[in-house]
Design a protein around this nucleic acid. Structure first.
Lengths: 236, 236
DNA sequence: CGTCCTTTTGAACATTGTCAAACACTGTGG
DNA sequence: CCACAGTGTTTGACAATGTTCAAAAGGACG
């Protein structure tokens, strides 16, 4: 196992909200115990239930968070660079609630959870950043729950497309960033159901070819989807 | 509007993990700007989307957190004494994502969110407690999402009963703490469906009469429900 | 006792999931 | 280059699950 964090990775990590405001001294203290590893695609990084020894940061590639029960599995989120995951488990020193696997070749930084907790106690800026980030994560999951409980699968898909479009700065055409199979699981449905949902959205001006999406009638789609700031805004 | 926090309420609040470790000085500073109010049942305390001016604490009674979209409504959680709610919104100074209403006659403490943020920055113990509490809340919502996505409504009900039983220290008989209508919404189903689900659970040794539950065959129920520490443990 | 609300029940319906098969796409090895 | 395997996607028929609507039954409370 490769030990030590290459300094070339410092700027990416320092750029995260989480680490931006803390003192150099404390940042370096965190980096000292950390290391970086490259993983091929489809490698399981974390198994739910394991002790949370490290805070993870995706530097490049992408990582899927998923959960299992009774031989069923569901996708909880996809993490893209540069961001952390399983912060809550690190903070609480509790077992991971989700598993994680790489989707592509990925570069992952690992910061010992106990260092995170130690620096939290002595660096007020870092503490502030952690609590802000955690509150953000919490709010994301709450929004996701509202999406799941208040909307049908068709409505979830329509709103997902609108959110994705926003991420692409409002372009009327874009590519899905993940496999449809995975999207289906994330949206809480089967691949077959997703396929039919895409078909149903044709009548609201959605054109699909492979993973390329065209929104032909923005107004019509929004009228159907009824996006809400309190569910679909990925900031705040 | 009644202003000022009666000192008789201090011990209850001080007893919360959130406020237990902080300095007296900072605790009193928080209390100075806070106040307490009594509400009748079915009063809406918070409307989702409103600015989060106060951190709320249920001192007695109970409060339902719920969300709406497109004329649909779903119950997100029930808050019982003594605990806080909408901490994340206070921390981030962002709009509430959930509405809140009293279920019964309730006594609620209100602490200005900006005071919470201010004391967070100067009291490391309070900061630590907030981040621990937030991580806890986050993990609860993640567990809830897993429950929703990985289980059928029948399985959710069975596991809910087992969790409730644990809260009652493992007693084989107990009362449901909320109306069935509300429970149905919390579990993500209709009241009609819940009623049928209770009937289906008869064959696993559940007896229901009004809101009184008897678990006649613990083993059989657990065999069906397959409770998991990573979904059903309400601590950690 | 009557009123209001919740809960239950039944029947029809809608939505979503399952299974099997066909199809499309990708990359491999001959 | 093509045949092929492997995987993801789509389709169709069907089953399971969950919802809707209407009505009846039960409880709480004045």
């Amino acid at each position: 196992m490769y030990l030590g964090m290459p300094e070339s990775d410092f700027p990416d990590i320092r750029g995260l909200h989480l680490f931006a405001e803390m003192s150099d001294e404390h940042f370096l203290a965190l980096m000292r115990g950390s290391y970086v590893q490259n993983f091929p695609p489809q490698i399981q990084l974390i198994e739910e239930g394991d002790p949370s020894d490290f805070l993870h940061i995706v530097l490049s590639g992408s990582v899927e968070l998923f959960s299992s029960w009774n031989h069923r599995e569901t996708s909880m989120a996809t993490v893209r660079p540069v961001s952390t995951f399983i912060l809550a488990a690190s903070v609480r020193d509790a077992p991971y609630l989700m598993s994680a696997r790489t989707l592509e070749k990925s570069r992952i930084a690992l910061i010992p959870s106990q260092d995170v907790r130690a620096v939290f106690d002595i660096d007020a800026h870092f503490a502030r950043a952690i609590v802000t980030e955690l509150a953000q994560c919490y709010r994301s999951v709450v929004k996701n729950t509202k999406d799941l409980k208040l909307r049908t699968s068709l409505e979830r898909l329509a709103n997902y497309l609108l959110r994705q479009q926003k991420r692409e700065n409002g372009a009327s055409e874009f590519d899905l960033p993940i496999e449809k199979r995975l999207l289906a699981s994330f949206l809480g449905m089967t691949p077959e159901n997703l396929s039919r949902a895409f078909k149903s959205l044709k009548s609201y001006g959605i054109h699909v070819s492979g993973n390329h999406i065209k929104i032909l009638d923005q107004e019509d789609l929004e009228k159907f989807a009824r996006p809400s700031a309190l569910i679909d805004d990925f900031r705040s």
